[in-house]
Every structure is written in structure tokens, then in C-alpha cells.
Design a protein around this nucleic acid. Structure first.
Lengths: 151, 151
DNA sequence: CAATTTAGTTAGCATAGCTAACTATATTCT
DNA sequence: AGAATATAGTTAGCTATGCTAACTAAATTG
């Protein structure tokens, strides 16, 4: 099954690629994390906030927890911090058990600024590549997103 | 030095690409994190251990801290946990202040197993792609590594 | 050999992850 | 309707991870 003839990656090559991808993702985020600290908001809070701001409107706590792959009690505390910081507002829903979580104007602003700062470093790194490389990279991010969806 | 006349990526397109890449990395690691929990070793410990196992031999605590982009006190505690768990061994060096940190056989085994588990899911996702996509993705990773080095 | 610098640790604080156990509201079943 | 059950969130308590400030011990420097 180690078909050298076809263009398919062999098992070990796929493993190798997966390993490098994993490692690259770790290193990427490790660097960018530094910029996020400037916002004064913790990483989990920032990530949850981004779901509310960029993910298309208000959610319940459970939905947020699922989006963030985290247990409800964890999200409960993350949200408590965001509310305390004035970045998120709690609202009522028809279902009295559910809460409606919505980013405040301040929350939206903080997130966008952080996002800009973070992506700025990365965009700068990208711009140091040759234009062909950038083109390839841009095209391949689509493929990366496909892969993640299959995870 | 942004090539003005080429029809390559404009500033906003680069920003867009950077943003998507950042988001993709987050989602990727969020999924893989689940598998890592199976090892019973915390994420920071696992990552530090991987430097010792895959990064080519023993290091001092300061070197580890730098590799992991973390402050010495933080690494000190991470290492304490690894030693307590029998995954890392402390040794002496010529310089009496420095410690020589080395993975034990158990540490190496645990890491390799975790790595296999983690990368397994990812490799499976990769294998669901068409062969062209996988080829492209493999190429992307090279570019990605370049970008990260420029960060 | 005293002063300084360097490596690492300890202490104390905050965030973030978990499970277990609780409260409050909705739904279902008799 | 009323009891039993299910669902959404919170609270409590544990561990792990991040930080800074302050400490100890060893090496280097003046």
C-alpha cells in the first residue's frame, strides 16, 4: 500500500505532515499569545468573546461552551469574568433557564483591537514572504480549513 | 517592501489570510487538545516534555522556558510536575547553578504515545482529503513554517 | 574577596480546566 | 393538575498554568 507510483501520500508521510502541522500550529499560537496579553483579557475570555462578536450574534451559555469545546461550569466562570469586565451583557430569553449572552460595545471594541494587534504581527510575517509564497499560502489555508472541519 | 504593482495580495487580503490562519490554528489545537487529555499529563507539561524528547536532548530550565515562551518560575513548576510524575530527570552540570533536564524512558514513551494519538486524528482527517489537496497541504506546511520563523 | 550577575526556586495572585453537587425552570407522564 | 424527570446554569473545590516580586545559591567581575 506504499504506492510510490501514485501521488498519494503514504501513511508515514501523512503522519509526518500531521505532526508538522500540529507543531506549526502550536508555535504559531505561542507567538501570537504574547500580543493577546496586551488586551488585559485572558485567552479563554478573549476566545469566547470572539465567538460572540464574530460568530454572528448572541448565544446561550451552553452554545458558547460547545463552540469553545469547554464544559458548562468552565464557561460559566469565563462569562462571569467577561460580564464583570463589562465586555458581555446577560439577557433573558423565553426559556427562563437559558441566558442570552451578547457582547457590549466595549467588548466588541476590545476584541477588534486585539484581533488587529494579533493579526498584524502575523500579516507582517506573511508580507515577508515572496508573493508566490503568499499566494500559495492563501490558497492553502482553504485546504487547512477543510481538514479541520473533518476533525 | 510591499510590491505595489503586483496583483498579489493587497494589505487587506494579507490581513484576511492572517486572520483565517490564526483562526484555523485555534480550531485545530482545540480539537486535538481533547486527545491530549487522555495522557493524564497537562498541556504545558506535555509541550515542555516534547522539547526534551523531540528537540534533541537535555536542556537547562532557562532554555526550556525560552523554548516554551514562558517565564522561569512557570517552567520551574512545570518541570517540578514532570519530575514528580517520573517523566523527567534532573541532572548536574559543570555550572552548579544550571540543571540538566532530561526525559526519562517513561517520559519518552508517554510523549510518543500522546503524539501518536494526537496526530492519529489529524492524519485521519488528512487522509479524507483528495490526493491533490493533501499534496497542497503538505506544501502549505513548509510555507507555514517559514512564516512562523519570521514571527 | 566583596559586589554583581545569573540560574533557579518559593510565595502569592489570577485565569482556566475538570467533576460533583446544587438551584431553578421546563417538560413529560400519570 | 401534580409528581417525576430532564435541562440550563451556578457553586464549590480540586489541579494546572500564567505572572511578578522576592529569595537562595553559584559564578563572574572588579
Amino acid at each position: 500500500m506504499t504506492d510510490v507510483k501514485s501521488k498519494r501520500l503514504s501513511g508515514s508521510e501523512t503522519f509526518e505532515a500531521a505532526d508538522r502541522l500540529h507543531s506549526a500550529a502550536i508555535h504559531l499560537l505561542r507567538r501570537l499569545r504574547v500580543r493577546d496579553r496586551e488586551s488585559g483579557v485572558g485567552p479563554a475570555q478573549l476566545s469566547a468573546l470572539s465567538v460572540l462578536v464574530l460568530g454572528g450574534g448572541p448565544r446561550s451559555l451552553g452554545e458558547l461552551a460547545e463552540a469553545e469545546q469547554v464544559r458548562p461550569p468552565t464557561m460559566s466562570r469565563i462569562v462571569a469574568g467577561l460580564v464583570r469586565a463589562g465586555l458581555v451583557r446577560r439577557g433573558k430569553t423565553e426559556d427562563g433557564r437559558r441566558v442570552r449572552l451578547e457582547a457590549t460595545a466595549k467588548g466588541t471594541r476590545i476584541l477588534q483591537e486585539g484581533r488587529r494587534r494579533r493579526v498584524e504581527s502575523l500579516a507582517q510575517a506573511l508580507s515577508s514572504l515572496s508573493s508566490e509564497d503568499r499566494e500559495k499560502l492563501s490558497a492553502l489555508i482553504d485546504h487547512l480549513e477543510k481538514v479541520i472541519r473533518h476533525l
